[in-house]
């Protein structure tokens, strides 16, 4: 493969198809066609975004609410910068606090007085909340995957096992996170009673709720992927007398991988959506709690702050999806080339 072809292939696998025309253009390939192509894949979306912002700005200025006028894009952008600014201000304060403590500690030591470490107790900033949400969704996603992939494989391998699991899947799949959450919180309180817990209880409840809601797409896709392994490929395994375990490991799982990753991608999307609701209801730290706190605040900034959160949630969600698409492309193979 030429270098250009490799770069283009890399773009496609990474889901950055948008840049393929740029690569071609830079290499001087059919400039007019590549420019048209780039215009369609980049220009049009940008234009649409611009129209959206204009409409938003126009409509927002017309609506008066109990807590002031609905913010337009500019106000939300300012608010976003302010929230990020707050974060760094808070970090500086934290650093100063620990600096002060170091000084005090030395002073105490000189004077021979006992010293007890104190932790900075500032409230979590917006970016901290984003970090917590990401950690929680990944924890939930890992739990979901660890449960769903093996069960999905068993379902795909054994119609009997699938028949046994099917009613449970059908019943629990549509349950909303809001219904799971209270049960999970009570169970976590009852079962997670470590003396000095490494994880917060709220973190565990959110993660488990995310897992409960997001494991289904992975489970079902894995089952379908495993069940639809090419019969010819299984015949190859039979001729070679591969053991059952080897057949699963060397033939079934690799061939189901694209399905499994499609499931994982859907699961992560569901998990991210569910997490915000769970955090909001459970007052678990994270973006959901941020939105709820701002709502309770009812200040003139509220709407802009919540809108910043909405965009953050959306952008992170689509980045997560992009990441999973890249993984999915990396493991997929041309199904027709067997």
């Amino acid at each position: 493969m030429s270098r250009k072809a490799r770069v283009i292939h890399g773009c496609e696998v990474a889901g950055l198809d948008v840049f393929v025309p740029v690569v071609r253009l830079l290499s001087g390939e059919e400039p007019s066609r590549q420019i048209a192509e780039f215009g369609r894949s980049v220009g049009i979306p940008l234009l649409a975004l611009g129209v959206f912002l204009l409409v938003w700005a126009g409509v927002a200025s017309q609506i008066e609410t109990s807590i002031g006028r609905v913010p337009g894009p500019a106000a939300v952008w300012e608010q976003g910068k302010a929230l990020v600014g707050d974060h760094y201000a808070e970090r500086t304060k934290e650093a100063q606090f620990y600096e002060r403590m170091e000084g005090l500690k030395e002073k105490y030591a000189e004077e021979g007085r006992p010293w007890k470490d104190r932790r900075y107790s500032g409230k979590p900033t917006f970016l901290d909340q984003v970090g917590t949400s990401l950690a929680t969704v990944f924890a939930g996603f890992v739990i979901a995957s660890v449960v769903a992939v093996p069960i999905g494989i068993l379902c795909g391998l054994s119609p009997t096992f699938y028949a046994a699991m099917n009613p449970l899947i059908q019943i629990f799949k549509p349950v909303s996170p809001l219904a799971w959450l209270p049960i999970v919180m009570i169970m976590v309180s009852a079962l997670y009673t470590a003396e000095n817990p490494f994880f917060e209880k709220s973190f565990i409840s959110s993660a488990v709720t995310v897992a409960l809601c997001s494991l289904w797409p992975t489970l079902i896709n894995t089952a379908v992927g495993v069940a639809s392994v090419e019969k010819d490929h299984l015949n190859v395994a039979r001729v070679l007398q591969l053991s059952r375990f080897s057949t699963v490991r060397k033939i079934v799982i690799p061939s189901a991988l694209p399905f499994i990753f499609t499931g994982l991608r859907l699961s992560l999307g569901v998990g991210w959506m569910v997490l915000i609701a769970a955090e909001m209801l459970a007052q678990n730290p994270g973006l959901g709690k941020f939105v709820w706190d701002m709502f309770q605040n009812g200040s003139s900034q509220t709407l802009a702050q919540i809108m910043v959160a909405v965009f953050t949630i959306g952008i992170i969600g689509s980045l997560l999806d992009r990441m999973m698409i890249t993984l999915q492309n990396a493991v997929s193979y041309d199904v027709r080339s067997s």
């Binding site: 090419e230 039979r238 001729v239 690799p254 061939s255 067997s338």
Partner: peptide, 20 residues
């Protein structure tokens, strides 16, 4: 009594594993 490597098979549609 069953398939085995004493009888190699070249399948009609190749049956190569596409991920290898």
């Amino acid at each position: 009594t069953g398939p085995g490597p004493d009888r190699g098979v070249v399948f009609q549609n190749y049956s190569l594993l596409p991920w290898l």
